[in-house]
Design a protein around this nucleic acid. Structure first.
Lengths: 236, 236
DNA sequence: GTATACGAGATATATATACATGTTGTATAT
DNA sequence: ATATACAACATGTATATATATCTCGTATAC
């Protein structure tokens, strides 16, 4: 019935915005829980729920008896989950893509297992060169279950972000990405594209995207330019 | 006064243990919040606080109206923060180290900035080959502020884990690691050690360790074997 | 049989309150 | 001057309660 956003979510957005705008600055104290109670006319438990989440996500940290402070450390994990397009835009580059292949394929056993589908189901295979300011940064190969995303092939993924399409037309949002990263020597056609040479050093990243129901929505197998792209990760 | 562990912490430990022991299995439902209330004779808010944290950390996920379930996805982030020794032990390998260099040095500007110390202060420089079952996996170069860890040079870091020493003798624990990862071509002495060849593909990882007060305690600049070591990361 | 309605049970959000614990600054006693 | 005590204020933990929303199985009506 009520389409209102929960109060604690509103407080989270409010604080995030104030951090982004530099009104709450790195290392500085933010208003006390009581002050937020007054400002939002709500209970302290509700304010704490909001702050708890921001602390958990690394935006804020608390010191008992003193207050709550803005973290010194930029939070970048959530960036990654939004994909290449968003990530590059954030860094100030103009992202673009060139589709190498986009087709329906029979599912290989590995892919079926990763996507938790039957080997008899088909998958979409989307292979793209990802570019930043027209410089090739990565080759991204994505597998998506056909059954879950029927008609996906009508969209052009040179113009559209895959995540945007999944979100807008299939109401699917990525919650988690589980990735494995290692280094490889890139050869053949991929080396030609990324390095304009026969060989180059790259990073291989394989992983699964998981939606809000904890079911896998895509399996990706990508190769990143070894020196043009830097993974930025916060471990806890 | 009371040295008792908070109830919600007890519940967290309890659930984690049950997951580790396979009593709560991947994808399966765990008891309802109400059942935990009865079992621990506590209020629902307290139980929720415990489960909230486990959900946030990726151990559990909730579906409104149905229940709370054990995540399919192994949680590995926290592993990394415990360092190479712990990580390799978890994976079933026997970790060991060979110290290449351990000395006091004048601080370079980059290091000073990363550690947020003055360029006039000295740092310890510890360079080690990290091995798993006696196979070289990585070269790890760590810089630590001398002022904060006086007398660190009396310890041998072939036998001891750096993190263990910091924890035991300096009461310092790592809360976060902020890392950058890219791929490089390894040459020279490092290639000899890691690959027994003149060249090899590796990953360069640079990053800062941050303690519970959000101050930096170490800066590391390491090179990992490109194919023997795989980074396993969960993005949110 | 099939569809609908409803209720039980589970999580989601929110209020109001209480006391514990840690930090800091100020006032007081020495 | 220095130490001590205390008050003010911050976060930390916990209880008790209420209502909303979502899922699923079962009973009912057709």
């Amino acid at each position: 019935m009520t389409d209102t956003i929960p109060i604690y979510q509103q407080i989270i957005s409010y604080i995030k915005e104030y951090i982004d705008n530099g009104i709450y600055q790195k290392g500085n104290i933010i208003p006390s829980e009581q002050e937020f109670c007054n400002q939002f006319n709500t209970s302290r438990m509700t304010v704490r729920k909001a702050i708890d989440e921001l602390v958990n996500d690394g935006y804020l940290y608390r010191i008992q008896g003193r207050g709550t402070f803005v973290s010194h450390w930029v939070y970048r994990k959530s960036l990654e989950v939004l994909g290449f397009t968003y990530h590059m835009t954030q860094l100030g580059y103009k992202p673009s893509s060139k589709v190498l292949t986009f087709e329906t394929k029979r599912t290989e056993p590995l892919i079926a297992e990763k996507l938790k589908i039957l080997p008899t189901e088909n998958v979409y295979f989307l292979s793209r060169v990802r570019m930043a300011d027209l410089e090739p940064i990565a080759i991204e190969n994505v597998y998506l279950p056909e059954k879950r995303f029927p008609g996906l092939d009508v969209y052009s993924f040179e113009e559209n972000s895959l995540y945007d399409v999944l979100k807008t037309y299939y109401k699917t949002e990525v919650l988690l990405k589980q990735e494995k990263i290692n280094a490889i020597m890139v050869e053949g056609i991929y080396a030609k594209i990324l390095f304009e040479k026969d060989k180059g050093v790259g990073m291989r990243m394989t992983g699964v995207d998981i939606d809000t129901n904890m079911s896998p929505i895509a399996y990706a197998n990508s190769i990143y330019h070894g020196t043009k792209y830097i993974f930025d990760v916060i471990f806890r």
